[in-house]
Amino acid sequence: MTVAKENLKKLYLDWINKKLAYKDLDAGTIEITTPFLDRHNDRLQIYAVPLENGDFKLTDDGYIITDLQMSGLDLNSSAKRKQLFRTIINGYGVSSNSDSDELFVIADSSNFPTKKHMLLQAMMTVNDMFMTTKSTVTSLFTEDVGAFLESNNIRFSENIILGGKSGYNHHYHYLVPHFKNIPERVIHTMNVPSKGTLSNIIFSWSDTREARIKQNYNTELYVFINDQEKEVDKNILNAFHIEEIKPVLWSKRESVIDILSA
């Protein structure tokens, strides 16, 4: 099993390296095309813009927020949306520019991989959290999961950052603490099931889990999946099971109350 896992990890990292592409643009700017997909199944792109002090700005050039606005979703339409947006990007250490709608981080050569990773996570999370159909969703899915935990007297912390073996930090929505021989349970949400979001969660958890094991933590990951609008692809569920991640369909959320409240 260990050999199989190492082979899967190598295949995944090889896939990332193969799909990454760098292109020189004007004024020293570098366009970075990543293997991660947006909701249109297009590969996400970010830009490294050199600064006068030798650092550089990594930016999405306003793509994520502009795309949501073109779909009719205004992040400033309610205080709740603005607050959740701020919570998401702050959790990843990402800033936003209201004039250009860009998401960005400032990086140098020593922290470029971590900063790039956190920006991409923030881009996918903002897109996933807010790309909801207007007619059926009255509250955002992550808030629904938090309300579910609270209504069932499940003790939790929210907006958790856990370090990975690689040195990357990873953001998770909730954490239920361990008790005696019961492991700590990390909870993440998947509002719009997609291969891009799946890959991001698997990579983040694989990195996080190795670090938690090294620190002698017994930790499990539960992913709450929004299946209110359509059936979730079985391949997504199977991929989670292979990685020893516990998927929880929202329609079957009652099945984990006893486990999470223990």
Results as ranks from 00 to 15, higher is better:
residue 216 N to E: 05
residue 204 S to G: 06
residue 215 Q to G: 04
residue 195 K to V: 09
residue 139 S to L: 03
residue 119 L to Q: 04
residue 109 S to P: 05
residue 216 N to W: 00
residue 214 K to I: 05
residue 184 E to S: 12
residue 157 S to P: 01
residue 133 T to L: 13
residue 191 N to G: 02
residue 164 G to E: 03
residue 135 S to W: 07
residue 152 N to A: 05
residue 161 I to W: 04
residue 216 N to F: 05
residue 180 K to Y: 06
residue 188 H to K: 15
residue 144 D to A: 14
residue 108 D to R: 15
residue 161 I to N: 15
residue 152 N to W: 05
residue 117 H to T: 05
residue 182 I to S: 10
residue 214 K to E: 10
residue 168 Y to E: 00
residue 187 I to W: 03
residue 177 P to G: 14
residue 212 R to G: 02
residue 182 I to D: 05
residue 206 S to V: 07
residue 187 I to S: 02
residue 180 K to C: 03
residue 172 Y to D: 01
residue 142 T to E: 00
residue 134 K to E: 13
residue 138 T to F: 10
residue 154 I to H: 04
residue 212 R to L: 15
residue 134 K to W: 08
residue 108 D to H: 15
residue 214 K to A: 13
residue 209 R to G: 00
residue 136 T to L: 13
residue 170 H to C: 04
residue 117 H to K: 12
residue 140 L to E: 09
residue 176 V to I: 15
residue 147 A to G: 11
residue 148 F to V: 04
residue 124 M to A: 06
residue 156 F to M: 02
residue 105 V to G: 00
residue 179 F to L: 09
residue 119 L to P: 06
residue 185 R to N: 14
residue 205 W to H: 13
residue 177 P to C: 08
residue 116 K to G: 00
residue 194 S to I: 04
residue 207 D to Y: 12
residue 162 L to F: 10
residue 148 F to K: 03
residue 123 M to H: 03
residue 111 N to Q: 11
residue 116 K to H: 02
residue 108 D to Q: 11
residue 219 T to N: 13
residue 179 F to P: 00
residue 117 H to F: 08
residue 193 P to I: 06
residue 194 S to G: 13
residue 134 K to P: 01
residue 218 N to L: 12
residue 187 I to Y: 00
residue 190 M to E: 15
residue 184 E to H: 10
residue 205 W to L: 07
residue 183 P to L: 06
residue 214 K to N: 10
residue 129 M to R: 00
residue 169 N to Y: 10
residue 157 S to A: 15
residue 184 E to D: 09
residue 166 S to V: 07
residue 204 S to T: 05
residue 184 E to G: 06
residue 165 K to N: 11
residue 136 T to I: 08
residue 154 I to L: 04
residue 119 L to N: 00
residue 145 V to E: 02
residue 160 I to H: 03
residue 180 K to V: 06
residue 213 I to Q: 14
residue 126 V to P: 03
residue 176 V to S: 08
residue 105 V to D: 00
residue 108 D to P: 11
residue 169 N to C: 07
residue 212 R to M: 14
residue 218 N to T: 10
residue 166 S to E: 01
residue 168 Y to Q: 07
residue 207 D to H: 12
residue 143 E to H: 01
residue 153 N to I: 02
residue 179 F to A: 11
residue 185 R to W: 01
residue 157 S to I: 09
residue 177 P to R: 13
residue 200 N to T: 07
residue 117 H to C: 05
residue 197 T to M: 04
residue 153 N to Q: 13
residue 171 H to A: 02
residue 168 Y to N: 15
residue 117 H to S: 13
residue 161 I to G: 09
residue 157 S to E: 15
residue 175 L to W: 14
residue 159 N to H: 08
residue 110 S to G: 01
residue 176 V to W: 09
residue 145 V to D: 02
residue 152 N to Y: 08
residue 132 T to Y: 14
residue 149 L to T: 03
residue 183 P to I: 07
residue 209 R to E: 11
residue 169 N to F: 08
residue 115 K to E: 13
residue 165 K to S: 09
residue 144 D to Q: 15
residue 112 F to Y: 15
residue 128 D to C: 02
residue 112 F to T: 03
residue 184 E to T: 08
residue 154 I to T: 03
residue 153 N to L: 10
residue 191 N to Y: 01
residue 127 N to L: 02
residue 157 S to M: 12
residue 200 N to Q: 10
residue 181 N to P: 02
residue 189 T to V: 14
residue 177 P to K: 12
residue 216 N to Q: 11
residue 180 K to H: 07
residue 165 K to A: 12
residue 135 S to A: 11
